[in-house]
Simulated assay, not measured.
Amino acid sequence: MNLKITKENYQRYHRQIIVPEIGINGQLKLQEAKVLVIGAGGLGSPVLLYLAGAGIGTLGIADHDTVAIHNLHRQILHRESLVAASKAQSALEGLQQLNSTIQYHIHEEAISTGNATDIISDYDLVIDGSDNFATRYLVNDTCVAEDKPLVYGSILGFEGQVAVFNHNGGKHLGMLFPEPPPAELVPNCGENGVLGTLPGIIGTMMAQEALKLLTGLPVLHNQLLIFNTLHWTFRKITF
C-alpha cells in the first residue's frame, strides 16, 4: 500500500506525529494497519474511539448484540437514540462522526468456530473486548493459528487486566490460563457490577498497547498487568 501523509492528515494527527517515538513513519504504520476490535461494549468503546482518533487505516468492529439502556453508563460510544439498534451499526455511526477518513468493516455476528478464521485472518492485530471466556479462548486460539498478535483486557468491580499475547514470539492466553474456569463460577458485571469508568481506563490502556505495538514500540511481553483502581495498585505477573 502506497500511503503518504497528506496536509490534512498532518493537521489532524500533528500532536502524535511530533512525539519523537511516533513521527511520520509511525503515523504511516497506523494508516497501513488493519485492526479488528471484538466487542463494541465497555472495553471496545474507548478502544475504538482512540484507534479511530489515531488514524488506524482499517478498523473492524465485531459485535452481534444490540444497545441496551443499561449499557450507556459505561459503553460511551453509544447514544440513547440508538437503544435497541445493532451495536456494530451504532459504533460505526459514532466513529464515522469522529473520523470519516478511515475504512470501517462491521461484523454483526457472534465470533464462532465457523467464522473466526475468516474474520480474523483479514486483520493485522486483534483486540479482544469480549465479556465471556468461550469467546476469549476461541479468539486466542484463532490468533495463534493465524499468527496474529492479540491485545487482551478484562474487568470486574474495581480491577482490570491487560496483556499482549502472541507477539514477537510471546506466549498466549492458553499458556497463562490453560483451562477456562467453569461457567457457573465466573462472575460478571451483570451480577457483580462495575463502575463505568473502569472499562474506560482499561480500554484506554488496551488502545495504548495497540498503538505502541503497531508503531514498533515496546509492549507487555509475557506479562499480565493487573490494575486495582480502588487502591491504585499495579501488579505485573510474568508467565
Results as ranks from 00 to 15, higher is better:
Tyr123Thr: 02
Val83Glu: 05
Gly114Ser: 15
Leu72Trp: 00
Leu77His: 05
Ala110Gly: 10
Tyr50Phe: 13
Asp128Trp: 05
Thr117Met: 06
Gly23Trp: 06
Ser45Trp: 02
Ile106Met: 10
Gly53Trp: 09
Gln27Thr: 11
Ile61Gly: 05
Ala145Tyr: 01
Gly60Ala: 02
Gly60Ile: 08
Thr66Asp: 10
Ser100Gly: 13
Leu43Tyr: 03
Ser112Asn: 11
Lys87Ala: 07
Gln31Thr: 12
Leu92Met: 13
Ser81Lys: 14
Val37Trp: 00
Asn71Ala: 04
Thr142Gly: 01
Thr101Ser: 15
Gln16Pro: 10
Tyr152Asn: 09
Val139Leu: 04
Gly60Phe: 02
Ala68Asn: 14
Val139Tyr: 02
Thr58Arg: 11
Thr117Cys: 03
Ile61Glu: 02
Asn140Tyr: 00
Ile106Lys: 13
Glu21Asp: 13
Ala88Glu: 07
Gln103Lys: 15
Val83Ala: 08
Glu108Met: 08
Phe133Gln: 09
Gln103Ser: 14
Thr101Pro: 08
Gly129Lys: 05
Ser100Cys: 12
Val47Ile: 15
Pro20Ile: 09
Cys143Tyr: 01
Leu125Glu: 03
Leu43Gly: 02
Leu43Asn: 08
Ile56Gly: 04
Ala40Gln: 11
Gln89Asp: 15
Ser90Leu: 09
Asn25Gln: 13
Val47His: 02
Asp131Gly: 09
Ser100Pro: 13
Ala145Thr: 14
Leu95Phe: 04
Ile38Lys: 00
Gly26Val: 12
Thr113Gln: 13
Lys29Trp: 08
Gln31Asp: 14
Leu51Ala: 03
Arg79Leu: 11
Ala54Tyr: 08
Ile120Tyr: 00
Lys87Cys: 06
Gly26Trp: 12
Gly39Tyr: 06
Pro149Ser: 05
Leu82Pro: 06
His64Gly: 04
Ser81Tyr: 12
Asp131Ile: 08
Val139His: 02
